[in-house]
Structures are given as C-alpha cells and as structure tokens.
Amino acid sequence: MTTPAPASVRQRAIAHAGWETRLLLRNGEQLLLTIVIPVGILLGLTMTDVLVQQSGPDRIPRAIATVLAVSVISSAFTSLAIATGFERRSGALRFLGTTPLTRTELLVGKFCATAAVTALSSAVVCVVAVLIGWRPSASALWAVPVLILGTAAFAAWGMALAGLLRAEAVLAVANGLFLFLIMFGGVIIPAASLPGPMSVVADLLPSGALVTGLTDSLVDGQMPSGLAVIVLIVWLASGALVSSRTFRWS
C-alpha cells in the first residue's frame, strides 16, 4: 500500500476534514441524528396538525425551516461538542497535538466535516420535501448562506463548550442547551409566539436567528433579514473567539 504525501496546511486540513467526516458517518447515532430524525420531524410536521402555524400552503416550507434548524443545531453544536469532548477524554486529541496538524487545521477540518454532514442532511430533507409536494422557488437558495452561517456559528460554540468543560459535563450541557434552544429558542415554537421578553430573547439567540433567516428564504421568498444575519455573525465571532481561547489538546 502506498501513501500520498500531503504536508501543506491546506492538505492537512482537508485530510482531517475527510477523517472527521468518515468517523461521523460511520457513527450510527450520528446518522440517526443527521438523517432519520430530521426526516421524521419533517413528515410529522407536514402530515399532522402538531403546530397550528404550519397550516396552509406554507406548511411544508415552514416545516423545512424548522427541521433544517434542528439538524444544524444537533450536528454543528450538540454532536460536535460531545464528540470533541470525548476525543479529548480518550487522548485522541492529545496525540493529534503531537503531529504536524495545527490547531487551526483541526478546527477547519472539524468545521468542514460538520458542514458536509449538515449539507447531506439538508439535501435529504429537501429531497423528501419535494417528494411530498414542496415546489421551491429560486429565492430558496438564500437558505444556503444562512445554513452555512448558522453551521459556523453553532460549530464555533460547540468547540467553545468542548474546550470549557470536561467530557461528561459537555454531554449534559450540550444536550440540555439543545432542548432549551429547540423549545424556547424560536425553533419549534416561533419566537413571535413566545410570551413577552422571551420573544425578544429568542430573536437574539442563534437558533431564533437561524429559523428567521431560513423562513425568510424558504417561506417568504426573500433575502434573510438583516437582524438575523447580524445576530448569527455576532454569535459566530464570539464563539470563534471563545473557542480559540479555550481550545486545548489535552
């Protein structure tokens, strides 16, 4: 067997992204989170009257916006944080810290792998949505940059959480925050339907901004609102800052 000999920064980042993607897709729980659950939620939301707001012609695109947001949060935040925490506990990160792979290459690789998994999940959701009657317009493509921005923001905070806490605590906190954001962060229950100040807070959370941006693109057929984009950029910048400060190999 011969081995190629990449050694440049770009090639190491790509090699690590490929490695992470391979491990992610082999993980049965990850596939459940990435493919099965989003499709299940999509079918549940479009074929039942779980949410009053999703009746009428907007029913499917609204459901897609919700499902894609859930998928991004679970892949880019919860799964990434938990996997990184346990890689540190197993010593795998410690070992990588002794190889030519740099911290930046590791972070870029992890982001690319997460983005690839999110893209796969989004593609499957969209295909299923088309099969059950969704007819997207060209403006739906605005959802792509929103998804990339949302994935980056949640991945940055996933890495930050993994750097701040030990593996077991990451597991508990990441799952707890996932449930909180889904329930009260403007995902399942729209931010506008939340009582009083909770509505404002939800709009300022990355989950609320992500759903708003996706709804603007997929339901209203327009560019994502400026507020949603700014909120996601602020969460991305702050998450990147915290994760770069807290990241450690061991």
């Binding site: 081995t3 000999a5 050694a7 792979l101």
Partner: peptide
C-alpha cells in the same frame, strides 16, 4: 493511514 497523510515522507502504514 490518516496519521501518515499528515507527514511529508511517511512510511507505508
């Protein structure tokens, strides 16, 4: 093989 890909002149895994 993955670790080998990080080095400029790796051995055969």
């Amino acid at each position: 093989t993955y670790i080998a890909s990080l080095y400029p002149h790796p051995d055969d895994p």
